[in-house]
């Protein structure tokens, strides 16, 4: 769906994106990175607002820059909190929809549908200038999904949404993802991203540090051993068994909680041994890997 081939983008002497090569397909993909990492530059490249300085980018096998064919299949929810303030939310969505080539009557029907979908049906007749941040986010999402695009790009979409709104927003995204849409969500809030997807693109200072499933990326980070916690009724006996394994780097036991924490670089093999031990009488009732999450991967790759 989206292909970047050694794409770089410079703003004068400042580099926005540095030699990025990747492919993005269907499902939800999170675009992660700190401020200035290159997330917005990548979004602008994909949405055809700017061109790469070097390299190539194709969306649906076409150059996206100013390309109506691409925009017909792409919905974009920008991070800018700007609207034609004199319009109502309904008028704005309708107008954006009309400019996607939808006829007046069909556009009105579709406007009502998408406003219902984003939970704005009862408030969309008021002018945008009176809207809260969360309401504005919903209107932006409504205009982005108006034409039922195959690819949806959401730049920091959860900003300003209350907890209920976030939950509803994520539900909408999940339902779109289940329809086979490709959804790219940029965020710097790891907790939110983790609730949406395990598939990430991690950018840092314009470079693509990692892409793929969080667990797979975690497995590739060999210099940081996996931490695995196992809770058992007999932690010491279990620790003794683990001490025999050559790929276990360290073991610590917490008698009070019955918890054994192991550090290993070969998590898969270790997990299979844990399974064997459980089958041979060790009462293991909880296994947890505290660093097999997005935040740990992010810290390992980017530092603090």
């Amino acid at each position: 769906m989206i292909n970047l081939d050694h794409a770089s983008r410079w703003y004068g002497e400042v580099i926005g994106l540095n030699d990025v090569t990747c492919t993005i397909g269907s499902g939800v993909t999170a675009l992660l990175g700190q401020n200035g990492a290159g997330k917005s530059t990548l979004m602008r490249l994909i949405t055809g607002q700017i061109r790469p300085t070097t390299g190539q980018i194709t969306v649906f096998d076409e150059d996206p820059f100013g390309n109506p064919n691409v925009f017909a299949k792409l919905g974009f929810c920008p991070d800018v909190d700007s609207f034609p303030e004199h319009l109502s939310g309904k008028e704005f969505v309708l107008r954006m929809g009309r400019m996607m080539g939808v006829a007046e009557t069909a556009a009105k029907t579709r406007t009502a549908e998408v406003l219902e979908l984003v939970g704005m049906a009862d408030r969309a007749d008021k002018p945008v200038k009176g809207y809260s941040k969360g309401m504005r986010q919903r209107i932006k999402l409504a205009q982005a999904i108006f034409h039922n695009p195959d690819l949806l790009l959401l730049d920091e979409p959860l900003n300003g949404l209350d907890p209920v709104g976030r939950r509803e927003f994520m539900d909408v995204l999940q339902s779109l993802a289940h329809q086979g849409k490709a959804i790219i969500v940029s965020s710097h809030i790891l907790f939110e991203v983790e609730q949406m997807t395990r598939s990430i693109l991690l950018l840092h200072r314009g470079r693509l540090l990692a892409s793929g499933d969080v667990s797979e990326i975690r497995n590739l980070i060999d210099q940081h051993p996996h931490r695995i916690r196992i809770r058992s009724t007999n932690a010491r006996a279990l620790a003794a068994e683990f001490a025999k394994l050559p790929y276990v780097l360290s073991i610590s036991v917490e008698d009070l909680t019955g918890e054994v924490e192991v550090r290993t670089r070969q998590a898969d093999q270790f997990y299979s041994v844990v399974g064997d031990l459980a089958m041979h009488g060790h009462s293991i009732y909880e296994i947890d890997s505290p660093d097999n999450n997005l935040e740990s991967v992010y810290e390992y790759l980017v530092g603090n």
Binding site: T47, G48, Q49, F76, V80, P84, M96, M99, M100, H147
Partner: peptide, 13 residues
Amino acid sequence: QKTVVYLLTRSIS
């Protein structure tokens, strides 16, 4: 007004 992004991502040349 930073609303140009909406215009330039419509399926209109």
